[in-house]
Design a protein around this nucleic acid. Sequence first.
DNA 1: CCAATATTTGAACCAGTATTCAAGAATGGA
DNA 2: TCCATTCTTGAATACTGGTTCAAATATTGG
Lengths: 199, 199
Amino acid sequence: MYVSRMPRPREFEPDTVLNQAMLRFWERGYRATSIEDLVKATGVKPGSIYSAFPGGKRALFLKSLERYSTLVVPQKLGELEAPGASLAELRGYFDGLVRDLLSPEGRQGCLLVNTAIENAAEDDEAAAVVRGHLARLERCMTAALANARDLGQVRDSVDPGGSAKLLVATCQGLMVVGKANPDETVLRAIVGNAFAALA
Amino acid sequence: MYVSRMPRPREFEPDTVLNQAMLRFWERGYRATSIEDLVKATGVKPGSIYSAFPGGKRALFLKSLERYSTLVVPQKLGELEAPGASLAELRGYFDGLVRDLLSPEGRQGCLLVNTAIENAAEDDEAAAVVRGHLARLERCMTAALANARDLGQVRDSVDPGGSAKLLVATCQGLMVVGKANPDETVLRAIVGNAFAALA
DNA sequence: CCAATATTTGAACCAGTATTCAAGAATGGA
DNA sequence: TCCATTCTTGAATACTGGTTCAAATATTGG
C-alpha cells in the first residue's frame, strides 16, 4: 500500500468564499458580481478559488443558490415550516418579509426571486432551483392554510392549495414592489389585504 | 443672420435603434445586452449610435424604459385604462398576462419588473420609472375596482385602494412565478383565487 | 533534510466591454 | 464647384471579464 504524504493545507475556508459569493450574488446579482469582487472580499486569489470550486463562476453561483436555500430560507420561513404551523406563522412570515424590505440590509430582497428574473430564462439549472423553492413555499403555505381552516382561523370556503399558490405569488410580488418602492404603507396594505381575503 | 448649409442626413432611423434596444433590454436585461448586440441587430455602427444617443448605453436604457411605458404598456393594459373600466377589464388584463407568460414570445415577462429586480437598487432614475409604472397600475386598478364596486361586481366591503395595491403585487408576483415556472394550471389558479377574493 | 503532494501566487491570456476619434463621405446652398 | 455642416466608418482605446498556468511554497512522513 502507498503512504500519502501531507500536502500543503488550505489557508482559507471554502465555506467563507461560498458565503461571500452568496452574499454578493444576493445583493448585486450574478452578472454584476465579478470574481475580482470575491477576491477583494475574501483575500483569496482567483487560482485558489478556481481550484476549490471546479466549474468556475457559474458553479459557484449554483452552489450559492443551494446554500441560500439551506441557510437563509429556513431562517426566513421560521416556524412556518413546522408541522403545526397555522395562520399566525403564515402571517409572521409576511410580516417578516415587510420588515426585511424596509430595513437597510433587507433591500436586497430574495436571492431566488432575483434569480428567477435574471437567470431563469437562460439557465435551466438555476430555474430548477427556483422552482424547487416555489414548490417548498407552496407546500408549507398549503399545510398552514389547511391547519388554519381546521382551526377556524380562515373561512371554510378557502381552498388551501389554491390560496397557497396565490400567496406564493403575493410574496414574490411583495418583493418586487419593495425593491422599487420600499414604502411601509404600501407593503403593509398589500399584506393586510391579502390576509383580509382569507378571514 | 447666418444661413445653415445642409449636413449629411442620417441613414438610419433612431427610433429603430431605440426599439431594438428596448426589445433586447426586455428579453435579456441591461447588463446582458451589449452595444455590439445592437450593432448586429440594426447594422448601425457604434459611433453612429453614440452620436444619436448622447449618454451612451445607460441613456439608451432609460429611453427604452420610457418607450416601453408609452408603447407596450398601454397595449397590455388595453381598456383597463379607459375611464369606464370595471371588473371585466381588470380580469382581462390578468388573463392577458397569463396568456403572454405561456406563449413563447411572452416569456420575457415585463421590462419594468425585470428592471425593478436588476437595476432599481443601483439606479435611482430607473427605479423612479418603475415606481411611476407601479403608480400607474395602482391608479387604474383602483378606478376599475371603484367602478366594479358601484356596479355590484365585487363585495361592498372591498376597499379599491387597498385591493388595488394587492393586485399590483399579485401581477408582479405572477410574472416572477411565470418566469421560473410557466405552468398554466398554477398561473390560472393564482388569477382565479385573486379574483375569487373580490367577489 | 528529502520526497511527494496540494495550495498559493502573480502573471498572463484571451475575449468582450463601453466608448472615442480621426478620416472619409454626403448634402444643398452660395 | 466649393463650403460648412453633420453623418458614417473602421479602427483604436482602455478597461474589465472569466479563466489558466508555471513556479514558488508549505506540509509531514520517511
